[in-house]
């Protein structure tokens, strides 16, 4: 293996880690601001201009807080659980192309902004993101707290509900493209807006989008840590940076799943021009914004309602969609 390749990969990993850790912090700021504006408040205003330095203040608070491990908790598992959430979120990012390939200025070195272009890209991303659910599950089982235990049961029920929908809804676009690679998905839609998969697979797009809310644990399906019912669920016993790691994982996941939705259904970065790259980031930003918008607009649903929705409504629709796609492709 070439030395240059190893160095390039290491640099890409460090850049992704730094950018998305920072974005995860900023994500909490965006969320508080947008929720505030939707509720006709100002949100954080005191630290820095327009409260921009609130992120830094929160960071200092989380890092300096005492790190408490409760007496009855199962120590090793309790400590490793937040790391699972954060680490799997970033591991999933390895197969996502964040920008079209570009040449470094003043040289002719071509950079591919993807850590590993594996030919099973989307399967790998969804699989590793699913492992992220072990974070809340293990954390809540290990903390020996009854609210956390309820949260663990809910984590398991959310997991078995949404996994089926993501898999089945993706099947139809996969049949059309014939590849698991996110780059192939992008190239399939490179011809412009008319080629986007959303026009031929609107049902799959909606189902995948709904499942993305369950996957990231965002508001309509935020059952794992509903603060008005079960305190903070898995986070009840956590303090300081361990608690913070859960949130870095959650916000990073929101960014990554937004990238994936755009790559799968909305043309990704198109033909790879500078305009395409900016459009890619813009579309991603819309989906991130939509996560926050939903949180301001919708109430949470009960766990049994989520299971009913996933198994009895969305799964049959996804199956019918797959069958129809098959028939259309055959004849």
């Amino acid at each position: 293996m070439e030395v240059a390749y190893i160095i390039e990969t290491l640099i890409k990993i460090v850049v992704i880690l730094l950018v998305f850790s920072a974005l995860a912090g900023l994500g909490t700021y965006f969320e508080r601001k947008i929720l505030a504006f939707m509720q006709r408040r100002l949100g954080p205003m005191h630290v820095g201009p327009y409260g921009l330095l609130q992120v830094a203040a929160d960071g200092i608070k989380l890092f300096t807080k005492e790190d408490i491990v409760p007496t009855n908790a199962v120590g090793p598992i309790f400590k490793i659980a937040p790391v699972i959430t954060a680490a799997t979120a970033f591991m999933a990012a390895a197969a996502i192309p964040f920008l079209p390939q570009f040449t470094l200025p003043f040289t002719d070195y071509v950079v591919h902004p993807i850590v590993a272009d594996v030919n099973i890209g989307i399967l790998y991303v969804l699989g590793v993101m699913a492992v992220g659910f072990y974070g809340p599950l293990l954390g809540s089982l290990a903390s020996s707290n009854k609210f956390a235990l309820i949260s663990a049961a809910r984590a398991a029920s959310v997991f078995i509900s949404y996994e089926v929908i993501t898999g089945l809804s993706l099947l139809a676009p996969l049949m059309m493209v014939g590849s698991f690679s996110l780059i192939d998905f992008n190239n399939y839609q490179a011809g412009g807006i008319g080629d986007w998969i959303i026009w031929s697979q609107p049902v799959a797009f909606l189902l995948f989008w709904i499942a993305a809310f369950a996957e990231t644990g965002r508001t309509p399906f935020h059952l794992v840590a509903n603060d008005h019912e079960i305190i903070d669920g898995f986070g009840t016993e956590y303090s300081g940076m361990r608690w913070g790691l859960f949130f870095i994982g959650e916000y990073a996941n929101m960014f990554f799943i937004s990238f994936v939705i755009v790559l799968l259904f909305l043309g990704g970065f198109g033909d790879g021009s500078v305009l395409g790259a900016f459009a890619f980031l813009g579309k991603m930003a819309f989906f991130f914004f939509f996560f926050l918008w939903t949180r301001a607009a919708w109430p949470d649903i009960r766990p049994d309602q989520l299971m009913w929705l996933c198994w009895k409504v969305l799964m049959p629709i996804a199956l019918i969609n797959v069958v129809i796609t098959g028939f259309v492709m055959m004849f």
């Binding site: 790998y124 699989g127 699913a130 599950l137 997991f159």
Partner: peptide, 25 residues
Amino acid sequence: AIQIIVYTGAVMALYAFGMMFFDTT
């Protein structure tokens, strides 16, 4: 990838049983 996806789900179901039958701590 299939190994990761299948066994995450399978062991998750085992956790659910573990929760029901034992005090896991």
